[in-house]
Design a protein around this nucleic acid. Structure first.
Lengths: 335, 335
DNA sequence: TTGAAAGCGCTAACAG
DNA sequence: CTGTTAGCGCTTTCAA
């Protein structure tokens, strides 16, 4: 490794093509500014020598690195993983890369990542940001920042209407005759969970009922399994769950306990990930477009960088689908 | 956003501190080369102005970007996610960042990522590489490359002895009286799976038995669930599974089918992720140090970059633990 | 349409 | 221990 001798530079290409360095530069980055014949020569030379522009030199002068940073709380959550993967894919189409920084859902680490990466990237997408709005806006004065999964005043934000979807599922439960519903809450301190929970509780109150909240717990499979026993014992006839990973864990344990779905208990979750491909009867879920969030964020950043100015891309609340299936059934008699 | 006017440069700090630019540079990167008094002045000035060195300018001259790239097949696999997270954490301690590039387990995309990132990073860690050894070594001539989860001749490689661990679990099954064991195989084309499967089959043959192979399947929860029925119907009394995610999916479906563990079937998996925290009796597993792999790779890269020369860091096969529990039991009578 | 020249912001010799 | 002097490899005016 380490062969600083055989690296091909712009001059090498220029010499090979019999033109000047600036012509090579133009040919490669603004092909319409050179004569077709020259273009061909330069491309041929670059190709044959295996030239790849030094990104640092380019970044130094243009001020663009070709990187976007995506800050995510963790990678264990398949929702985040899906968002990150989609973001990378779309960025790649524009010749850009997405740097993923794991923050652990910790405001301090998030702030550190923001500060450290500021010089390395052209913009930030922050997934479920923990930082105060002011801190995010401060960064935004220098580099475009887009928020995902949380509305931040003054920033382009992309959210999904998961609370609304949960509400519709709740309505269906009431319609089926359920009166005792449990909600297994997600990550402590999570903005998303807060919204889902509050909406659900208020929504239930409007029906004259109430929802019993369990948790909050980390959105991990094992945590869902761990919560199953208490939920089953609580006497509820239906459970809504913060996300699909928790639901899988819960159902896993239900299976071992002999609790049947939906005969003994109806179940549904937000964030349909890995639920759709399950064998057997499908499970009721709010269909959140995890990948779409990542793509929207990248597209917005790209637009802001292109625009150069302070043009703020419009944010959106993405619609969610709701898949209502036989995992919802009337409450078992005698309850 | 975009305020190229108020960016603080080295000269600004120099002026503020009343010294030359090079002194500031030294003070910040090699503190032991300046007088304590100067150091204090410079640090004070840098702090008060909020100076952050331009990484592109630094990279241009030093040839170091402070980035390592980690190529992973996908982020849905919690094993990979754990490795990636640990790698980032260790790199952060050395003031470096890890760029995660998702390749989809596709050799072409892996090659593209290698080529595109070559100028942007100080080294590569490739998780479960798909590229031919020659291609990896070619990159290694210019930037250090470390292989994870596959031994690549001529490259520093970190692997885990998962096959050996599976063998020990298999021995225990034989000891318990099992004669009909199933193996649910992992990702098609995976080097890891190939090794696990072959070792297991040979190992079984030495006991005069044979292992029935199901799959291969993508290592996703739903795939494990989908495979459960066929496996249960095959008449085996024990199942070894490629990884823990698949096992969870399989057990999930077993639960719904009324198949009990371990009364009806004994189970075990490699790559213990998310298995340990499960409520109830623990599950037999090969304990693979996913995070440790990431840390080893980063440490090796750091060493190679420091060494500057062609000093090749030594690779290792990390030991695996084996947790043998009551998820293994004698085969049910009458089979 | 092309070339010459001037840096981008920083680090690394080299003197002093 | 510190300042001066050159660039790192590329893009981009400015003339020609």
């Amino acid at each position: 490794m380490a062969g600083p001798d055989d690296v091909v530079r712009l001059d090498d290409v220029a010499r090979e093509a019999g033109v000047s360095a600036s012509t090579v530069s133009r040919a490669l980055s603004r092909p319409d500014m050179v004569a077709p014949a020259t273009l061909a020569k330069v491309r041929g030379a670059a190709e044959s020598l295996g030239f790849r522009a030094n990104p640092a030199a380019r970044a130094l002068i243009t001020g663009r690195t070709g990187f976007f940073a995506l800050l995510v709380p963790d990678l264990d959550n398949p929702f985040y993983a899906a968002t990150a993967t989609a973001a990378q894919d779309l960025a790649a189409e524009g010749g850009r890369r997405v740097i993923i920084a794991v923050t652990g859902g910790d405001a301090a680490r998030e702030a550190a990542a923001l500060a450290e990466l500021e010089g390395q990237v052209d913009g930030f997408a922050v997934l479920s940001p923990m930082s105060p709005a002011a801190a995010l806006k401060e960064v935004h004065r220098r580099k475009p920042v887009v928020a995902i999964n949380r509305r931040v005043a003054g920033l382009t934000s992309f959210t999904v209407d998961t609370p609304g979807g949960l509400g519709r599922i709740y309505d269906r439960l009431v319609e089926l005759g359920h009166r005792d519903v449990a909600y297994l809450a997600g990550p402590p301190g999570s903005w998303m969970d807060r919204r889902r929970r509050d909406e659900l509780v208020e929504h239930a109150a409007r029906s004259g009922l109430r929802v019993r909240v369990h948790g909050p717990v980390r959105p991990a499979f094992a945590e869902g399994a761990a919560a199953a026993r208490a939920i089953a014992a609580s006497g509820c006839t239906a459970v809504l769950v913060y996300n699909s990973l928790l639901l899988l864990g819960m159902m896993f344990e239900f299976g071992r306990m002999g609790v049947r779905v939906p005969e003994d208990v109806s179940v549904a979750a937000a964030d349909d990930i890995a639920l759709a491909d399950l064998p057997g009867p499908p499970i009721t879920a709010v269909l959140a477009p995890a990948g779409e969030l990542g793509r929207c964020a990248v597209a917005a950043l790209a637009e802001m960088v292109q625009g150069g100015g302070d043009r703020r891309a419009p944010g959106r609340r993405l619609p969610t689908g709701v898949r209502i299936t036989d995992s919802l059934a009337p409450p078992r008699p005698g309850v």
